[in-house]
């Protein structure tokens, strides 16, 4: 039985296969509409989410399966003090596969050690979010035709941004990628991620200026400064408006720049950027459903 807790649980070849499957589903959805018939997905969301939960549910329904679950810890037995592992062992009796989001880091790993069915980490605190990473990889692959040889800038909250950590980790296994980390001092990339890149001999640079970095970028990955990751509200208020992408800042950008954002945004991308053909974040949302369909098929060993 396989779980997906960290993006590196999948080999590069497996990710390539998932991308190929997702692209085939996008082309031929009817071929896949019954592959998960009579299978059930449980979505255990101990923390609120719109996109991730709905995309998992949409993915399972699109494969002909069904869905059960809860969307906040308050509506589960966690409110009575039940442990994550007990909740998961219970749900294992009802469902064939579990997608789980939890505010505590490592909760899906703890669950996977006891679960009788595959666990998919749908985000654990500020730690990992591997299905967002698969979504990002599929989007980049569709936009650029390859996952090699480009310069990617990550902008905003690089300290607590789990999507950023997972994506850097995943991209570090491909070739010819140059990383540019754009963040204020307080929200810089954690040292252990930079250290991992150094150990692999991969080039990266750090800057506080989005304007300086912009002309070199093939991909710009924007992030939200997340209120829920701060213990101190004053720090959040001070940093939340640090980077706002608007049409003026995009003037020096490449014509084929690809702007991504894991969403939701607050104000870090001006709405006026949405009509720019380089804004690809809603296409990214669309990709999220199809890569999750491919992942569910893989973990349940389903074939079209």
């Amino acid at each position: 039985m396989r779980h997906l807790i960290d993006i590196t649980d999948l080999t590069v070849e497996e990710i390539d296969q998932l991308i190929a499957t997702a692209e085939d589903i996008m082309e031929n959805p009817a071929k896949y509409q019954d592959v998960a018939a009579h299978k059930q997905l449980a979505t255990l969301f101990f923390e609120p989410s719109t996109r991730t939960r709905l995309s998992f549910e949409s993915a399972m329904l699109g494969l002909g399966g069904s869905v059960l679950g809860f969307s906040s810890a308050a509506s589960s037995s966690t409110a009575k003090g039940e442990t994550v592992t007990d909740t998961v062992r219970t749900v294992s009796c009802y469902a064939d596969i579990i997608a789980m989001r939890h505010p505590k880091e490592g909760a899906p790993f703890a669950a996977s050690r006891r679960s009788q069915v595959p666990i998919i980490n749908a985000g654990d605190g500020g730690h990992n979010h591997p299905t967002q990473t698969l979504t990002d990889l599929l989007t980049i692959h569709r936009e650029r035709g390859s996952l090699n040889n480009f310069t990617i800038g990550f902008c905003g909250d690089l300290k607590f941004g789990r999507t950023v950590h997972s994506l850097v980790n995943a991209l570090s296994r491909y070739t010819g990628i140059h990383f540019v980390f754009i963040a204020p001092e307080e929200l810089k990339m954690p040292a252990y991620i930079n250290e991992a890149l150094r150990r692999k001999g991969l080039p990266y640079e750090e800057t506080e200026s989005l304007e300086d970095a912009m002309p070199r970028l093939d991909i710009l990955y924007m992030t939200r400064v997340q209120k829920e990751r701060f213990f101190n509200e004053a720090d959040y208020i001070r940093l939340k408006d640090t980077y706002v992408l608007d049409p003026a800042k995009l003037q020096s950008a490449k014509a084929d720049l690809c702007i991504l954002h894991p969403l939701p945004r607050v104000n870090e991308i001006a709405v006026s950027v949405d009509d720019d053909p380089r804004a690809r974040y809603f296409e990214q949302v669309r990709c999220g459903k199809f890569i999750r369909m491919a992942l569910i098929m893989k973990l349940l060993d389903l074939k079209a």
Binding site: T83, V84, A110
Partner: peptide, 13 residues
């Protein structure tokens, strides 16, 4: 010692 880690909440792990 990470206060955000699940093991700091669930001591039986």
């Amino acid at each position: 010692k990470n206060p955000r880690c699940i093991t700091t909440d669930e001591k039986q792990l």
